[in-house]
């Protein structure tokens, strides 16, 4: 952990009851987000991205969730030890969250103005006039056309992209140091997605803010990330900067994901496809959880959970088999 670190998650374990057994949804996840940095957490559905993100703000209902281990440090504070009152103060003020489904996270019976106003006044005591000006300015800062009129609208009167802009405006309301965005553009069209990504970038240019961006879309990752964590079956399997991950992927899963992306440049060639499916977290294979799908698997992979191997310059991958072959 460097001085620069804003958020650090260490060996986080979040379990759920699943029938007779337990679903180890998040099983020893470690990552960090530095100041002003954009970090992407990428992985296929069910690998534990959302559960990890919600744990940071302690939004996983306990029970059924059980925090089975780990430590989350934010700016010197241990979040898992914080009392509920301090946690509430932290949410929105220092760490804000943007979700995939803006319609379900906005209240249908209140206007946009009411909801942004609420987000501001939870943490700040300002007069009606000033509050109104703040709301207009927030909507303007997220590129909303006709912000004055929009304040009077209800969520259903806006398009998906506009609703996501409102969510981002609310997240920005108290100038948080960290925004956690969980698949914020997955439900949107590509052109709208491009606008939202551009919006995050331009906000970061204007003021100091870190972004933890969760997605399953590698194209989005390449577009926005400084550093990337690839997740599989509840664990980080590879981490590095964008060039390390996209040009020099060292984990068979990351390599497989990249190879299976379709593009017009691969026309006529067969797409690589990773055989099999993501394991159910209640029945994870022993050893390396990727072994049933891995073309490089060796007998040891069925027995031992692999260690992270250090390729230098912050590039790590959880695959000793390829690490041992690296210079061959």
């Amino acid at each position: 952990m460097t001085n620069d670190t804003l958020l650090s998650v260490k060996d986080l374990k979040v379990y759920f009851p699943a029938g007779d057994g337990i679903a180890r949804a998040v099983d020893g996840v470690s990552f960090e987000v530095r100041r002003d940095e954009t970090v992407c957490l990428v992985g296929e559905s069910g690998c534990g991205k959302t559960v990890s993100a919600l744990s940071i703000l302690r939004l996983n209902p306990v029970p059924p969730a059980e925090i089975a281990g780990g430590r989350i440090m934010f700016d010197g504070q241990s979040l898992l030890k914080l009392d509920e009152e301090s946690m509430r103060r932290l949410r929105g003020k220092h760490i804000a969250m943007v979700f995939q489904e803006p319609l379900t996270s906005l209240n249908p019976v209140f206007t946009i103005g009411d909801q942004i106003g609420e987000a501001v006044s939870i943490h700040e005591n300002i007069g009606t006039e000033a509050l109104h000006r703040r709301c207009v300015q927030l909507l303007k800062s997220v590129g909303m056309p006709f912000p004055e009129q929009r304040l009077k609208d209800y969520p259903h009167q806006l398009s998906g992209g506009q609703r996501q802009r409102v969510m981002i405006a609310m997240a920005l309301a108290c100038a948080p140091r960290l925004i956690i965005a969980d698949e914020p553009t997955t439900a949107l069209d590509v052109t709208v997605q491009a606008q939202i990504l551009q919006l995050f970038k331009s906000i970061q240019k204007k003021r100091s803010m870190s972004l933890l961006y969760i997605t399953h879309d590698l194209g989005v990752v390449a577009n926005i990330a400084d550093r990337v964590y690839v997740m599989y079956a509840g664990a980080i399997v590879e981490q590095g900067n964008t060039v390390q991950i996209f040009r020099h992927a060292c984990h068979p899963y990351t390599q497989g994901l990249l190879a299976s992306l379709p593009s017009r440049l691969k026309r006529g060639k067969r797409l690589y496809s990773i055989p099999g499916v993501v394991p159910n977290p209640a029945f994870k294979p022993k050893g390396c959880p990727f072994h049933p799908r891995c073309p490089y698997a060796e007998p040891v992979c069925r027995e031992e959970f692999p260690e992270m191997c250090d390729y230098g310059d912050g590039h790590l991958a959880r695959c000793p088999v390829l690490f041992d072959k690296r210079d061959l």
């Binding site: 590129g143 056309p145 398009s159 992209g161 506009q162 590509v190 052109t191 709208v192 997605q193 491009a194 606008q195 990504l197 551009q198 970038k201 879309d217 590698l218 194209g219 989005v220 990752v221 390449a222 577009n223 964008t242 060039v243 996209f246 040009r247 990249l258 992306l261 593009s263």
Partner: peptide, 21 residues
């Protein structure tokens, strides 16, 4: 222009209209 390109550095800043539909 809006296709996210899985090649880092291949994504120049877009000049999309800021307007929605």
């Amino acid at each position: 222009a809006a296709i996210p390109d899985p090649e880092p550095g291949n994504t120049p800043d877009l000049h999309l209209p800021e307007r929605d539909l």
